[in-house]
Design a binder for these strands. Structure first.
Lengths: 135, 135
DNA sequence: AGTTATACATACTATAGGGTAAGTACTTGT
DNA sequence: ACAAGTACTTACCCTATAGTATGTATAACT
């Protein structure tokens, strides 16, 4: 990670850093504001679209669907649609998606600690977070 | 995290989700593509600006400085400047910043596993990653 | 003189992400 | 008829982030 790459194209440079830094690899797949939050929602098991949306009050439908598509494209989640009307769609994590559990859980742990230090507290304690029963 | 908030302002809704979902709390501080990468670079100890830049070949100076400022504002890193010319600036993680080590390390672990499954390998193995000697 | 080192700042432009509003399709219930 | 449920899609606009180019200041070296 201390190697200096020659200036080829930006894309080639990005690919190169991608191969050298594991966190870059992760950011390529889950970087941004919403993806980790969505993945965290699914840690506790499959969820219907409507439940996902309820669990993330501030996301717009447009952004949620967009992010879900990207996560599906990265093979981190599976979308299962029943051939019924009204639609019935369920999202669940893949094995690779579940592999991010330690990342997401470590985030939650850090958030609790950091918030306590700053005088803020969560309305729920850690016991109620998705996946926490297996920690 | 299954509570539905009434539609007040977007900001108030964001604040509310912020208090209810720990991952949202983390995203507010380190969400995006570059911040985790920068923090990962500093896991192994303080670095000068120039070394940071070398360690992240694809980032522009503008973006690096901008992100460093934001991370400093979130109290995740400290910037120390010597009163000399040419400038001599060192960045290091705060205690809170170091608290994210498990997050970043879990990312690295996942990246290695995921990349192996997809036939890609990193040019370095996990032993050489910042902070790995303490795992 | 020009170059190099160091760590930025600024102006302008381009790209990406996000928000709002309206719409789609079908069924069921009032 | 309208409303509600379900999970999207599309058009347009705005905001945020990122990229490119140029510049700053000082000292030391060629």
């Amino acid at each position: 990670m201390t190697t200096i790459k020659e200036n080829s194209t930006i894309q080639a440079n990005k690919r190169s850093a991608f191969e050298e830094c594991p966190v870059t690899y992760v950011m390529e797949k889950i970087g941004g504001y919403w993806k980790p939050i969505i993945l965290f929602q699914l840690l506790s098991g499959p969820k219907r679209y409507s439940d996902l949306k309820k669990g993330i009050p501030d996301i717009t439908e447009k952004v949620l669907i967009q992010q879900l598509k990207q996560l599906e494209a990265e093979n981190l989640l599976i979308r299962e649609a029943k051939p019924v009307v009204p639609p019935h769609v369920t999202y669940s994590l893949t094995k690779a998606g579940m592999g991010l559990k330690q990342v997401l859980y470590a985030m939650a742990v850090w958030a609790v600690e950091d918030s306590v230090e700053h005088g803020a507290t969560f309305r729920r304690n850690l016991q109620h977070f998705p996946g926490s029963e297996e920690a």
